[in-house]
């Protein structure tokens, strides 16, 4: 390998890891919702879009840095999620229907309404928050003068990555150590058992949807400094969230993180070494392969190891 090849490889790896960290955060919300409620939420990306608009307007009107908007958008999205679950999804889950999948179509309808409301109120213009540090980066040659290769790490990407990791850690702590978190996990693992143990399943479901929405809201705030925004942006992120959820295993926090990182690195490597046009195919091929060969996702591997089985 020549120095140039090594440079390309390492730069691709860095890009993949940073991207993967952000992907993980998008996937986390989905994995919770799917794990606890077995709901396929096709409005996931649209919820992210709503959060991005919140961050955008905070930036334009009050000059609030998008990273600070995490503290504004996350609670707002939490309440939006709670409202959606309580007033729209719960009534549908309650009734007897031939196919339980009709809730999926409900989320499609919700996504449609959110996207077209955004078009109506904010027009379909492309927007972004041009923060002053948007293109700053750390360069290897600045720290190591005689370096044979040059690597760069973007400042906003790194900040987004770090915040994503912090949020993930906080979520893990919440699910593993607090009572509410444990109840949510119980609901995910065995609904009937959780009911018998006196868990307020109904409340947990509402809370979960809220947390899932809040998480994707946070992801939106982390994405806007490095990306852009328009009303129809949701769909592609919903798909990414699915892939990560399946890769990581339903309802598994750690799984979603590893799944996100795998996906990020895999996509970046495909882009460099096969062709960027094929990157989406790669995404879905590992998705289907994982569905077939590793139905429990990364989480099932972890579990096996832990129990020495």
């Amino acid at each position: 390998m020549t120095a140039v090849q090594i440079e390309v490889f390492l730069q691709t790896l860095i890009a993949g890891l940073l991207l993967g960290g952000l992907y993980a955060l998008i996937g986390l919300g989905m994995t919770l919702i799917m794990g606890v409620m077995k709901i396929i939420n096709l409005a996931h990306g649209e919820l992210m879009m709503v959060a991005m608009y919140i961050a955008y307007w905070m930036f334009v009107l009050f000059h609030i840095d998008p990273y600070l908007s995490v503290f504004i958008a996350t609670p707002l999205l939490f309440f939006l999620g709670v409202a959606i679950q309580k007033f729209l999804i719960n009534p549908v889950l309650k009734v007897e229907s031939i196919l339980p999948e009709n809730q999926v179509i409900l989320t499609v309808g919700i996504g449609m309404v959110l996207a077209s409301l955004a078009t109506m109120f904010f027009k379909s213009d492309y927007r972004s928050t041009p923060v002053s540090y948007a293109t700053d980066a750390f360069y290897l040659s600045d720290y190591w003068k005689s370096s044979p290769i040059e690597l760069s790490v973007s400042v906003p990407w790194s900040i987004s990555f770090v915040i994503a990791v912090l949020i993930t850690a906080a979520l893990w702590f919440f699910l593993a150590k607090t009572d509410t978190g444990k109840s949510i996990r119980a609901t995910a693992q065995d609904l009937d058992a959780a009911l018998l143990m006196g868990v307020n399943v109904k409340l947990m479901r509402v809370a979960t949807f809220g947390i899932g929405a809040g998480l994707v809201g946070a992801a939106g705030c982390l994405f806007i400094p490095i990306y852009y925004l328009f009303p129809a942006l949701g769909g592609q992120f919903t798909l990414i969230a699915f892939v990560i959820t399946i890769l990581g295993g339903l309802g598994s926090t750690v799984g979603a993180i590893i799944g996100g990182l795998i996906l990020g690195v895999f996509e970046s490597m495909t882009a460099t070494y096969i062709g960027m046009g094929w990157a989406p195919v790669g995404r879905f091929v590992i998705f289907v392969a994982c569905l077939i060969f590793l139905p429990g996702g990364v989480a099932s591997l972890l579990r096996k190891k832990r129990f020495g089985k």
Binding site: V4, Q5, E7, V8, Q11, T12, I14, A15, G16, L18, L19, L22, F223, I226, Y227, L233, Q236, E267, S268, M269, A271, T272, G275, M276, G277, A279, P280
Partner: peptide, 20 residues
């Protein structure tokens, strides 16, 4: 000569190839 899917977030992999 490379194409990409619209809406891509990260072009750095392909750009580092271009750089090389």
């Amino acid at each position: 000569k490379e194409k990409y899917e619209k809406g891509a977030v990260d072009f750095k992999p392909i750009l580092s190839k271009v750089k090389a």
